[in-house]
């Protein structure tokens, strides 16, 4: 297995700042992206990304290419940090903490509608079981291959497909009105 990050990780671990910058450029947006999808909170997602990289810097000097690609390992760390935060949220009493809510500020109507739709999708995603949400975040939003996503979640491809299908079906049911709006908008605009 060829790990495209192996050289960068080795160099960054030895103190090469350019290699560290390249790793950050390559992976920071993905880490923030998956954490945003999991947590529905940008500030918390950035905290998670920062924590992932703290672990990267700690592991890089002794990283040995082995069973998992470095990127796979990073995603696992990010998801585990997200699961921890979600568990802590559940332990608190406020069930809506951190979940995006519909914006009520006055905006141009198109922009307002788009934000409302986005907020509804975020809320529906947040209501999914964590593993289904993670599968959709990796495959739909991060456009990872089924094999890479299954590796990150440490499950078979068949199990991944099951998570994806159940998650998408639940979202479809929860977002039927958004789909209707979009369809109406598209037909009205044509």
């Amino acid at each position: 297995m060829i790990d495209p990050d192996a050289d960068l990780v080795r160099s960054a671990g030895a103190g090469d700042q350019r290699a560290a910058e390249a790793l950050v450029r390559r992976h920071l947006p993905k880490m923030v992206g998956v954490a945003r999808r999991m947590l529905s909170d940008s500030a918390e997602a950035e905290d998670v990304a920062q924590e992932v990289f703290l672990r990267v810097w700690r592991e890089a000097p002794r990283w040995k290419p082995g069973q998992a690609k470095f990127e796979t390992w990073m995603h696992r760390v990010a998801l585990n940090l997200c699961y921890d935060r979600l568990r802590r949220r559940r332990e608190k009493t406020d069930p809506d903490a951190g979940i995006a809510v519909a914006d009520t500020r006055p905006l141009a109507s198109d922009e307002w509608l788009a934000r409302q739709r986005a907020a509804k999708v975020h809320m529906a995603l947040a209501a999914l079981p964590e593993r289904q949400r993670a599968a959709i975040a990796l495959v739909h939003f991060d456009e990872m291959s089924n094999i890479a996503a299954a590796e990150i979640l440490e499950i078979s491809v068949e199990a991944l497909e099951s998570l994806l299908a159940r998650g998408r079906r639940a979202l479809k049911a929860a977002l039927a009105d958004v789909a209707q709006d979009l369809r109406g908008g598209a037909e009205g605009g044509s």
Binding site: L28, A118, I136, F141, L171, L175, L182
Partner: peptide, 14 residues
């Protein structure tokens, strides 16, 4: 349905 999901695509820079 993909379009519905994509309406939540968050491309805000970090």
């Amino acid at each position: 349905f993909d379009a519905v999901l994509d309406s939540a695509r968050d491309d805000n820079p970090v």
